[in-house]
Nucleic acid binder design. Structure first.
Length: 423
RNA sequence: GGAGAGAUGCCAGAGCGGUCGAAUGGGACGGUCUCGAAAACCGUUGUAUGGGCAACUGUACCGAGGGUUCGAAUCCCUCUCUCUCCGCCA
């Protein structure tokens, strides 16, 4: 979340930035400032009261030690009123703080300077395109047909076992998934990311720290019996490794990668946009996460974009990179680049990665800090990106590489898949 | 799931109603010494928040939340987690 000091120093600028992402209650900013003033005043009053009680208690102790009972009793009686007042002030303080916290977490991150204003996907800016769109024959099939033809994914049985949107990969389809996961992880670790295999459920504190709560409450699967959430991305457990951690400056940057299944309720979507593997409730993804010094975070963001770009290029897929406009960015992000690959048979772009700089938004919630050269506590910056989300990559690979009698496997993947084609 | 033990600072580990933000040891950092290093010795080694330009100072924090008390790391209750044993189990 945003730091109160920043909000208080530049309230107009904060509102201006929030407007870039179409935030609809800028009055929250003023409410937060007022509440913080109230908090300070109450804190001061409480501290004073408590100090008087503490010093009286000390004196009572001394009187007791001296055997001066009457004086001790007299003092006790004299601070009874202070005690009641201190209790009242303390409760008031707790209420104010809770209130303040509640409002603070409703503020999204501020878009970076270079974020274009805009309402939705149509206002995103194409940064660059790469790769070559294939010329497919007239009778080219969309991936949901190819999947049937080559017996790679069985949606019906997945629906029988669990429900719609839970694909059952089988045979070469399952193997292709495994090859992709392994290739992606190898690619990431070869560039200095440390591999993790995190828990696939997280507690409330973790979901809150990375910003899924309270913003995306209904989009996560919630295991109510144990009050745990199925992760929507490995970002959540992996970033939380560093919750409540104070780092040394020389421990940064921290570079992590993890494979995980991702669970998303995505209530209310249906239609042709969600056919086949385009949108599902459970999918596989490999994620990269970095914790870095603030002064480097935008360089690191560029580096991560290039990292993901290299991965997409290695798969020989046509792609484009978008800079998201304010209205389309995630709640916690300051700047996001999306990667889309071109699915030739569907003739549409599919999002396969989202690379974001969260600046100190997540780390402020998480309390992940480092000590700078002057010994002052500073918030670390966090970033993450998909490298990559599997189902749409698979959809694109199948569609773009189909031939009359087989589906060709990209060269980099062949040693993982163990063959040059799916027959 | 059953029985027991525990949770204290970067780590280990004392403290079991007042003078404890917390002994002691280790580590880390700075210094003296040295050509340099080791050893030895000296010093430093919280977090949050309030007030103050600052020096400094108030308050809170000994797993979390409640309670008893003038006063709680210390006593009571609830929860969470860890460890040991048993059961179950990939």
């Amino acid at each position: 979340m945003l730091q109160v000091t920043v909000i208080k120093q530049k309230p107009d600028w904060v509102k201006e930035r929030l407007a870039i992402r179409n935030f609809k209650n800028p009055e929250l900013v003023d409410e937060i400032i007022a509440l913080d003033d109230e908090r300070r005043a109450t804190q001061t009053a409480f501290d004073t009261m408590q100090a008087s009680i503490n010093s009286a208690s000390k004196n009572i102790g001394q009187y007791m030690a001296q055997g001066n009972k009457e004086e001790a009793e007299r003092l006790k009686a004299s601070i009874a009123g202070n005690k009641a007042e201190a209790t009242r002030l303390n409760e008031q303080l707790a209420t104010i703080e809770k209130n303040l916290q509640g409002k603070l977490i409703m503020l999204p991150n501020l878009p970076a300077d270079r974020v274009p204003a805009g309402k939705g996907a149509e206002d995103n800016v194409v940064v660059r395109e790469g790769g070559k769109k294939p010329q497919l024959p007239e009778n080219a099939l969309p991936h949901w047909e190819l999947i049937k033809e080559y017996n790679l994914v069985d949606f019906e049985t997945g629906a029988k076992i669990t429900g719609s949107g839970f694909p059952l990969y089988r045979g070469n389809g399952a193997k292709l998934q495994r090859s992709l996961v392994q290739y992606f992880l190898d690619y990431n670790t070869s560039k200095g990311y440390t591999e993790y295999l995190p828990p696939f459920m997280v507690n409330e504190a973790s979901a809150y720290a990375t910003g899924q709560l309270p913003d995306k409450e209904g989009q996560m699967y919630h295991v109510t019996e144990d009050n745990l959430y199925l992760i929507p991305t490995a970002e959540v457990p992996v970033t939380n490794i560093y919750r409540d951690v104070i780092l040394k400056e020389n421990e940064l940057p921290i570079r992590m990668t993890a494979y995980s299944p991702c669970f998303r309720r995505e209530a209310g979507s249906f239609g042709k946009d969600v056919r086949g593997l385009n949108r599902v409730h459970q999918f596989e993804k490999v994620e990269i996460i970095q914790l870095v010094l603030p002064k480097y975070s935008y360089n690191v963001l560029d580096e991560m974009v290039h990292h993901v770009e290299g991965l997409v290029q290695s798969l020989a897929l046509p792609y484009r990179i978008l800079k998201l406009c304010g209205g389309d960015m995630g709640f916690t992000s300051a700047l996001t680049y999306d990667f889309e690959v071109y699915s030739a048979a569907q003739q549409r772009w599919l999002e396969v990665s989202s690379v974001s700089n969260f600046e100190s938004y997540q780390t402020n919630r998480m309390k992940c800090r480092y000590k700078d050269a002057d010994g002052k506590m500073q918030l670390v910056h966090s970033l993450n990106g998909s490298s990559l989300a599997l189902p749409r990559i698979m959809a694109c690979l199948l569609e773009n590489n189909q031939t009359e009698k087989c589906i060709r496997i990209p060269e980099v993947l062949q040693k993982y898949y163990g063959s040059a084609m799916i027959m």
